[in-house]
């Protein structure tokens, strides 16, 4: 790796002021499993000058139920989330998503905040030494559009960028209705992702830090489920993933939330599917119709129409599992 500066901080305030000192030229390092890879390959729109290590701040890896919600510290490790009995029982989709993320080692290092903030994996974007100066790097072109786009967006672009958000936990958190607490504000996680500017992944300001994930307690009659489709059973990023949470009222659906990821620049809330199932029983016919509706707006690229079929299947599977 080429040199950069590195600071350990002891408090969140110190972290914020360190970020401010660098005025956009510094980044947080949590587990490092994403950002270190980016330094190795030198793939940045703007290369950070410094990393601010927040692992030296004590007690940020908690997982607890408090104030009627699940609170997860930003440094909670994916492996701990995956195996936490409370999360497995009540916030099932999140435990499943964490369990299916990457590999055991990455989960032992990777944090929840790093997971929801991670950069896209578009292989043009990640091609070492900025081989492709694409839109996400401030350039003019998207090389995926007519290139190798088998893993790219099926729901169109953000300012012509067709990359997808690769996070496994984000859709689970969205399905569970989570909020992200930052050093400045509390955001619905669905609003946490940047919708306008492809050079950014999240709406976080340069000096803003994720300080907590808050998940409301699910209603009594609800269930959640996460499914991931990838080629290998471990290590692989999702080709498509999906999480659903459904609250039942007897045999029929009272409310539902469905979220796909790896299909668009941001996690893709399948609003139409969720609305469709409300008031219906969760049978094959209903979930098939819901999945078809959700993918109605899909705009496949030259090589990724198959992802539509997979996305439909995952919507069906997660909804049926919530019965």
């Amino acid at each position: 790796m080429k040199p950069f500066k590195h600071y350990d901080v002891n408090t969140l305030d110190e972290a914020v002021s360190a970020l401010q000192n660098f005025a956009g030229k510094a980044k947080i390092i949590a587990g490092g499993t994403d950002i270190v890879g980016m330094f190795k390959d030198e793939v940045f729109a703007e290369r950070p000058e410094a990393l601010i290590n927040i692992k030296t701040i004590p007690n940020l890896d908690y997982i607890k139920e408090e104030d009627g919600m699940l609170k997860i510290g930003p440094l909670a490790l994916l492996e701990d989330i995956a195996h936490d009995e409370l999360i497995k029982g009540k916030y099932t989709a999140l435990a499943e998503a964490a369990r299916r993320t990457a590999s055991p080692h990455i989960r032992e290092m990777g944090t929840i905040s790093g997971n929801i903030c991670q950069q896209c994996r578009c292989w043009y974007f990640r091609s070492p030494n900025n081989r492709f100066n694409c839109i996400r790097k401030g350039g003019e072109d998207c090389y995926a559009e007519e290139g190798e786009n088998r893993y790219h967006s099926i729901f169109g672009n953000v300012k012509d960028c067709l990359a997808v958000n690769p996070s496994d936990t984000a859709p689970a958190l969205i399905a569970l209705g989570a909020k992200v607490k930052t050093s400045k504000r509390v955001l619905e996680i669905a609003d946490f992702y940047e919708k306008e500017e492809p050079k950014k992944t999240t709406v976080l300001d340069d000096d803003e830090i994720v300080v907590e994930i808050q998940v409301p307690q699910p209603a009594a009659n609800s269930k959640s489920k996460f499914e991931k489709f990838a080629i290998r059973k471990s290590i692989d990023f999702p080709i498509v993933n999906c999480a659903s949470q459904v609250e039942m009222d007897g045999d029929t659906v009272k409310s539902a939330r469905v979220c796909l990821n790896a299909v668009f620049a941001n996690p893709y809330v399948a609003q139409k599917a969720a609305e469709y199932v409300v008031g219906k029983t969760l049978d094959e016919e209903t979930v098939t119709a819901a999945a078809d509706l959700a993918l109605q707006d899909a705009k496949p690229l030259t090589k990724n129409a198959y992802k539509i079929t997979i996305a439909k299947s995952l919507i069906k599977k997660t909804l049926l599992a919530c019965k």
Partner: peptide, 12 residues
């Protein structure tokens, strides 16, 4: 082995 069809750059 996946190549970019325009530039021949190995993508993976």
């Amino acid at each position: 082995v996946i190549y970019d069809p325009k530039t021949g750059v190995k993508l993976n």
